[in-house]
Design a binder for these strands. Structure first.
Lengths: 243, 243
DNA sequence: AGGTTTCGTTACGGAGGTAAAACGCCCCAT
DNA sequence: ATGGGGCGTTTTACCTCCGTAACGAAACCT
């Protein structure tokens, strides 16, 4: 239990000092297991905790007053989740586990201690939230005007690129753990239409499916259809304060 | 020219020390005036600068390969813009001035110096980008499934709430500085439909218009229609490292 | 004044939503 | 193992909301 998956993730982008790595690993000392379907945070309820997601899958969403659900983001191991609760008294979104997961909870005041002792970590958190901001603007552009096909294509590509960021062993297939209705709630379509698009993409030889796993057969074509470009690479973090 | 509008903005939420205020004011020493319509950053081109927007209006957008434009956000005096360029080598979005504006540019390495000397500023920047992240998720929810009416209503409310955040003298009317086509590109509609919605809302007594200014007559009804709640208040920043 | 931009309005067509039902599949209880 | 039961998927028919294209009116520079 030595490693910190959060530290591992950050080290994809920059070098950490031993002290920083140790401080980040300390965030993952407490571990809480949750089962698939468990509510981790409920929108509009007070929260004080945030989490490193150590294993599993979690999604965030909001329910609009008309009852429709908008899935905001799917998180994977190594992601830093619930971070809006650092800023807001009440959680702006709900968090639910898509599969059995391991969370490492810590409260805002541990965060304070961490930031006081390791100023550079604050800059890292700024970088992470900028990356997430840009990812969200890409989703925004996708929801604004793109066709159903484009929405589904870019959604799938975004998922696989983020999985690859965490786990080098990912090739071109993954287990989504989302129903077609949930995909619809993520990209702003009904399950009926998501189904049409997926089956069409399958017929066109762009993807294939087998027992829950989706395989992307022609990513270049999907990128074309989805107006997608991977933004998770090509970072410039040289300006970060020296270790 | 003593004040710093960026510092003023931050002080709406928390107390700064004199040293911090001075350091932030230093970011605004260089000022560059740009005219309406001027391109400040172009998507996919290398950038090294970011800006405090001291006066005027700026919008960010992307152009999708099919030619459609998605306006991501409109910025006002006191906003911190182009901040994605701290993380990415190439700007993920374009920035253009909606009115004659005053920008205070500084490069990533000044930012580094600032963060090294004032660790708490890094935490502040984290907070700002979390706030923006949440605002974007609200827009995302609005674009996902909401009707044209809802999109326009929540867009107008978001604008006025952000104006109020900066300027207490704003009451219930503002000069949008956007054409109906631009509103459409922000909320994912055509100008034809934006026009239908605006005229309908005017007929319903929810808004009124006079020489470019829009007045929100019934904000409660607009909030209902747009599924909108103001997220710019009710922050919890007590956990921030002590000054 | 003259041209350009923005606003306003129309008719039509299409992409995607709605509703409903059948089908497959996994899981669990008997 | 086996037979439901429930969830997810697939399919159909119909309909609505919004986009497209086009044009005239108004507003706005210069």
């Amino acid at each position: 239990m030595s490693g910190s998956c959060f530290a591992d993730r950050l080290e994809k982008h920059l070098n950490l000092t031993d002290r920083e790595r140790a401080a980040l690993a300390r965030l993952e000392e407490n571990q809480r297991k949750v089962k698939r379907g468990a509510m981790i945070q409920r929108a509009n309820e007070p929260v004080t905790e945030l989490y490193v997601l150590r294993a599993g899958r979690v999604m965030s969403y909001v329910i609009l007053p008309d009852g429709s659900r908008q899935i905001l983001r799917v998180y994977f191991a190594g992601d830093f989740i619930g971070s809006a609760s650092t800023v807001y008294r009440k959680s702006p979104e709900s968090l639910v586990a898509l599969s059995d997961s391991v969370l490492c909870p810590f409260d805002k005041h541990s965060l304070r201690t961490l930031l006081e002792e390791h100023p550079r970590v604050a800059a890292l958190m700024f970088v992470l939230s900028q990356m997430e901001r840009v990812a969200l603007t890409d989703r925004l552009a996708s929801l604004g005007r793109s066709s159903a096909r484009a929405r589904v294509a870019s959604f799938l590509l975004d998922i696989i690129d983020r999985l690859r960021l965490m786990d080098d062993s990912i090739t071109n297939s993954f287990d989504l753990k989302l129903t077609q209705e949930e995909i619809g709630d993520a990209v702003g379509l009904t399950s009926v239409h998501v189904n049409r698009m997926i089956r069409q993409m399958e017929a066109d030889g762009l993807i294939s499916r087998a027992n829950g796993r989706i395989t992307l057969l022609d990513e270049a074509a999907l990128e074309e259809i989805g107006h997608y470009t991977n933004r998770y690479t090509d970072l410039d973090l040289d300006w970060l304060p020296a270790a």
